[in-house]
Design a protein around this nucleic acid. Structure first.
Length: 569
DNA sequence: GCCGTTTTCGGCCCGACTGTTTTCAGTCG
């Protein structure tokens, strides 16, 4: 097993221990070790060989043994035992809002509840309300939670959430007594996909603000509301949290509610080590609060430079901040061009000319058209004949306008036998080789197919496997490693999909890519010119991934890169 | 189960909110 797979097992053990009602610190230890492994940059195998496993934070003698067993054999008797003793359905119940391991265990022991279905039955029969510590309100909330599980379990695109969050901010700002209001949470951290919206406001008197907020027209349901905080659900289904603090506490609250939880925990630990205490109300030395005008001042108080929200994941940013090596991040305005556009020639919705015009209007100096190859019949893929016609159209667009150079490529399927579906006899600027169904096959077959495909000298960019499956991290994780390794051996670039649905690229992969000398290209996989409006989501991906300004290509260097990647036939 | 320059035992981030209680446990972020 590799580090990520081992981490998943440790994570599962932690959850099972919770459900069994074991020492919560023990389960937390497993979760912490899993996180430590996930953040691992070095190779797990070499770490094991050198016996350096226990140097990782949160991994002691016991877990080092467990990890070694897992890495070597791929299974663990302890895990099997745990799985035997905890019904599978209990894990699903953790998804119900308001239910944690303790209550789930009580309902399992007293009522035999072992799945969401069984829980629904027990609630409807009024059994849950009879349990001590439970009541009618709790039962009702569980039923609501169960209903919501299916309905609003979804994630939301950051672009969607941002629009709503902005509108709500304006409303809050207009309320009496409000001095400041900001978007916090994962949305501020630039995540591509968010589960909810967090807003933080500063006001001298909070209750009036909270009440007004719960009465906004966007609000369809008030989940909870207190003196300083309210949680609501909006018409679009997105949950919104508002916290109101006193003006002096605003920077601390903004920082606290921006998170991530892991970043916060690390900061508080750091504060504690310096004899300070940090919470959402301030930074304290004993009982004395430290004055901070903004977030940067709070970081200064902890002897750190300001850390951009996009980096606050406790994946090495504190260490980077300490050693003065924080990366300079890409902003929207840094992006010069994007590759991999679809047009009406295959399954896109706009013409080449429209794509170019929109791209130019948002300041891009080049785009790459890459419609589907013939094998993608479902998407009206282009054969040699149509590709030649498309080439003439692109030339015409390039002659008619000089603002945005249009490059001509193709998104070619990697076929089951590993051949790349590029029609012969057409001169193309680049080829994106794309795996469309790579998830069902095993690791070995996948690698073989990739290696075969990449030995085709026409391939310049390796596209990511597309589709809903990419949202499942584990499937994606296996693939990105293969993709990088394969790309390294063949001098091709790897595509970073700018469509926020598509990718959750982690900075350690970018580091790995650097080590391997693999270049990335940013690509929106856009089907409509308007989709370009969403490309800030792509930049967010890049930012989270710590792409730096050096990774941005201008038109000349993009063309140079593409031609250098394309070896002579 | 991890961790330690006041500790090898006894801590483990912390505060708000909710619903159940009559002082608190569970959950969430």
């Amino acid at each position: 097993m590799n580090a990520r797979e081992v981490a998943a097992v440790l994570e599962e053990i932690g959850v099972l221990l919770d459900l069994k009602g074991e020492n919560p610190f023990k389960s937390r230890a497993y979760a912490a070790a899993a996180r430590s492994l996930e953040a691992l940059e070095a190779d797990l195998e070499s770490l094991l060989r050198k016996g350096h496993l226990q140097k990782l934070p949160g991994i002691g003698r016991g877990l080092a043994g467990t990890i070694a067993t897992l890495a070597a054999t791929g299974n663990l008797p302890y895990l099997e035992e745990l799985r035997q003793s905890v019904p599978e359905g209990l894990v699903d119940l953790l998804e119900v809002p308001g239910l944690g391991p303790k209550r789930i265990r009580i309902m399992h022991e007293k009522l035999g509840v072992d799945s969401p279905g069984a829980l629904r039955c027990a609630c409807k029969q009024g059994e849950v309300a009879k349990l001590s510590g439970f009541g009618a309100r709790t039962e009702e909330k569980i039923l609501q939670g169960l209903a919501q599980m299916g309905k609003h379990a979804g994630n939301y695109l950051s672009s969607e959430a941002l629009a709503l969050a902005g509108a709500l901010c304006e409303r809050v700002r207009a309320l009496r007594g409000v001095c400041e209001v900001e978007i916090a949470g994962s949305l501020r951290r630039g995540k591509e996909v968010v589960k909810d919206i967090d807003l933080v406001a500063a006001a001298r008197v909070a209750p009036g603000v909270i009440r007004a907020f719960t009465e906004f027209p966007e609000v369809v349901r008030v989940v909870g509301s207190g003196i300083t905080r309210a949680s609501v659900v909006t018409g679009s289904g997105i949950a919104v949290d508002l916290r109101v603090v006193k003006p002096a506490a605003f920077p601390f609250a903004l920082m606290y509610f921006t998170g991530s939880a892991e970043h916060n925990t690390a900061l508080r630990r750091r504060a504690s080590a310096q004899g300070l205490k940090l919470n959402e109300y301030g930074l304290f030395k004993g009982r004395r609060p430290t004055r901070c005008a903004d977030e940067a001042a709070v970081y200064r108080g902890l002897d750190l430079p300001f850390i951009l929200p996009e980096l606050r994941e406790n994946l090495g940013e504190l260490e980077a901040a300490e050693s003065g090596s924080l990366p300079e991040l890409i902003a929207s305005e840094d992006v010069r061009g994007l590759l991999h556009m679809h047009t009406r020639w295959s399954d896109g919705e706009d013409t080449v000319e429209e794509m170019a015009r929109t791209a130019a209007s948002i300041g891009l100096s080049y785009i790459g058209i890459a419609d589907h190859s013939p094998a993608a019949r479902y998407a009206n893929g282009l054969d040699a004949n149509r590709l030649k016609k498309q080439a003439r159209e692109i030339s015409a667009v390039n002659r008619a306008q000089k603002k945005c150079r249009v490059l001509h490529g193709i998104e070619a399927d990697i076929l089951v036998d590993g051949r790349v579906d590029v029609p012969a006899g057409v001169d193309l600027d680049f080829v994106v080789a794309s795996i469309h169904s790579g998830f069902q096959m095993g690791e070995k077959e996948m690698t073989a197919r990739l290696v075969r495909a990449l030995s085709d000298p026409r391939v310049s960019i390796l596209g990511h496997p597309t589709g809903r499956l990419l949202l499942r991290r584990e499937a994606y994780a296996v693939n990105i490693e293969h993709v990088l390794a394969a790309a390294a051996g063949h001098g091709v670039a790897v595509e970073i999909n700018a469509n926020p649905h598509r990718l959750d690229l982690d900075w350690r992969y970018l580091r790995r890519a650097r080590e391997l000398g693999v270049r990335f290209v940013i690509s929106p996989d856009a089907h409509r010119a308007l989709d370009l409006a969403h490309y800030s989501g792509g930049v967010a991906v890049a930012r989270k991934g710590w792409l730096t300004k050096g990774d941005v290509l201008n038109t000349q260097s993009a063309a140079r890169l593409l031609s250098s990647l394309r070896r002579p036939l």
